[in-house]
Write a protein that binds this DNA or RNA. Structure first.
Length: 576
RNA sequence: GCCCUCGUAGCUCAGCGGAUAGAGCAGGAGCCUUCUAAGCUCUUGGCCGCAGGUUCGAGUCCUGCCGAGGGCGCCA
């Protein structure tokens, strides 16, 4: 039972009124019906003012025409014109009650599925083989995963792909080091960071080793089978490690989603030839370049995308062009999404521009760089360990779980096994929510005390509200069913908020902006706790119909919170 | 030097061209014989960086300036 955005539904009614009253055609979106903060108004229509000039009438006159011709008596109370030409709309309680009751048992909670599903290729996470994941991979993994869940729920086909750094010059020294170590079974590379650093140190100190490493790169790229076997071992070990991190973080990526740099390697020559055949390439200082229009360097000269280095090697521009071509042309995707930090914004603009020049992307395709800001330490600078190194992701997550466990131990009455699970849900949820609840394009400050706070706009607040709802449901001794009644203001406010999930999700998906969903969920949780506070459900003096109605509202609220948290990749335990 | 992003309450952040700019934290005052107080209610606190412009209407759009961060050819 999909209903969608209440504001758009009202917008459609307003559009009808304008057509009948003034012969003006507008779309429901153009009716600009928005939730109102005014006393007594649930929504307000702002269309009259902007239309006034266009049709040569006074704003209030237009507003009055909307009011006079509005066919929405089933939905709203008789509307009124206010101020310079606002039309204030108050939903009828009967309508709210029926809608709210319709949410019970609806797995989509009123959210319609996309009418025209699209095919998305979503690039996120992208760690490097033979390197431990660090805090720099956190945002891409968390945001990308949320986008994946959100788009899928919206009814689209989404193919995630993990662009592993699994190719290039460092692998010469890594493989050579693996050979030196006399690697067998599970010794040697399980500590990835140490392994990488050892190889690096040897490369810098030992010219003979460096020479062997360079030869090894050539062997690797030449397809030498013995070398490839060792390389696969490195990749395999890393993949197993990434999978553990993803599992800890609750990220949906699997080994099957890996499309590393090596995957695109066989396509690179063809891409360069193709660009060349289309007359897009220029040789500059020995490098093969594409100059997409509109980009300049510091001297004001055209800025190149170097598709083949002067030494004949390939850089990330080549790989990214091959990636675009592969997903759009070979896999038939309509939309290419890249969850990569903001500093790469210009690079992606250039890659997209060149891809369009080359015809890899057409008007039927969209390509979006879902950029994100940097995680800052409490000093406002890029976060680092005291030693100045990058913060290891696993250590950070373990600390989050540990800190959460302390609070859980103080508060929870669950047995210790279940407390472990709850601490994980709370700790990991806190890290994810702190990230997702900020506008992704901005930098944000990573603060333990704030993200794990026992109060305020945190994941714990949402999880706690949900747990309280479940507690009521557990103790009710009856299944939620029946009519929804509205007697208390808190009940009305909650119903109104629950019906805004479709609008919140639509806004979230449209802008790939999970923080909009976070804001909505926090409002919903706030509305619920106010309801919880003033509207007893199970108390003996509550009439049976009221009890049943409130159980329905409690159930729908917990469904909304659980779904919302799930779309963010955050667990919603029934008990804390 | 050019380009991009960001400047909103003491702090951390929302804010879709619309009415008197909202939350959380911190500060102040209250609320547990009652479904989880990780909660609720009330309250203090704003030249929306500055200056122009567009508009019936600007925190939001445009221009300039100031401040912070990032990018600007063979790392990815």
């Amino acid at each position: 039972m999909a209903h969608g955005d209440v504001g758009l539904e009202l917008g459609a009614r307003v559009a009808g009124a304008l057509r009948r009253g003034l012969g003006v055609e507008i779309t429901p979106v153009e009716a600009v019906v928005r939730p109102s903060t005014r006393e007594g108004a649930d929504y307000q229509c702002n269309a009259a003012m902007s239309l006034a000039k266009r049709i040569g009438k006074a704003p209030r006159e237009v507003a009055q025409a909307i009011v006079d011709h509005l066919d929405a008596a089933d939905m709203v109370e008789p509307p009124e014109v206010a101020g310079p030409g606002f039309v204030n709309l108050r939903l009828r309680d009967e309508w709210l009650r029926a809608r709210a009751a319709g949410l019970l048992g609806d797995p989509r909670l009123g959210v319609p599925a996309a009418e025209e599903p699209r095919r998305y290729a979503l690039d996120y996470s992208s760690p490097n083989v033979a390197k431990e994941m660090h805090i720099g991979h956190l945002r891409s993994s968390i945001i990308g995963d949320a986008v994946l869940r959100l788009l899928r729920f919206a009814g689209h086909e989404v193919t995630p792909h993990n662009h592993l750094g699994d190719w290039g010059t460092p692998f010469g020294m890594l493989i050579e080091h693996l050979v030196d170590e006399g690697h067998s079974a599970d010794t040697g590379i399980s500590d990835l960071n140490r392994f990488y650093q050892e190889a690096r140190a040897k490369f810098d100190a030992d010219p003979a080793f460096a020479e062997r490493s360079r030869a090894r790169v050539v062997a690797l790229q030449g397809g030498d089978e013995a070398t490839l076997t060792l390389w696969r071992e490195l990749v395999g070990e890393s993949t197993r490690y990434f999978q553990k991190v993803y599992e800890l973080l609750g990220i949906l990526l699997t080994p099957g989603d890996i499309y590393g740099e090596s995957f695109y390697n066989p396509y690179l020559d063809a891409v360069i030839e193709d660009l060349d055949a289309k007359g897009l390439t220029t040789i500059s200082d020995g490098a093969v370049c594409v100059f997409p229009p509109g980009f300049a360097n510091r001297e004001g000269d055209p800025l190149p995308l170097i598709v083949r280095k002067s030494d004949g090697g390939y850089g990330y521009a080549s790989t990214d062009l091959a990636t675009a071509r592969y997903w759009a042309a070979e896999r038939g995707m309509s939309d290419l999404l890249y969850v990569v930090g903001m500093p790469q914004a210009q690079h992606f603009q250039m890659v997209f521009a060149a891809s369009r020049q080359a015809g890899y992307l057409t008007d039927a395709h969209t390509a979006v760089h879902i950029g994100f800001g940097t995680i800052l330490g409490e000093d406002g600078k890029t976060i680092r360990t005291r030693a100045g190194g990058s913060v290891k992701l696993v250590e950070l997550l373990e600390e989050a779980v540990q800190q959460a466990a302390k609070t859980v131990a103080e508060r929870s009455s669950l047995d210790s096994d279940r407390q472990v699970e709850v601490a994980r849900a709370v700790g990991i949820g806190a890290v994810k929510y702190a990230d997702l609840s900020n506008d992704r394009e901005k930098d944000y400050v990573f603060t333990w005390s704030r993200m794990l706070a026992k109060e305020g706009n945190t994941s714990v607040y949402l999880q706690y509200a949900n747990a309280r709802a479940h507690s009521v449901l557990r103790k009710a001794g009856q299944e939620p069913a029946g009519e929804v009644l509205i007697t208390e203001p808190a009940e009305r406010a909650l119903v109104l908020k629950l019906l805004q999930l479709p609008a919140a999700l639509a806004a979230t998906v449209e802008a790939y902006a999970p923080h909009k969903l976070c804001a909505y969920l926090y409002e919903a949780a706030t509305a619920f706790t106010a309801f919880y506070d003033t509207c007893p459900v199970l108390r003996s003096d509550v009439p049976a119909e009221t009890r049943a109605s409130r159980l329905v509202l409690t159930k729908v609220t917990s469904d909304v919170l659980t779904l919302g948290l799930d779309l963010l990749g955050i667990a919603a335990p029934h008990e804390l």
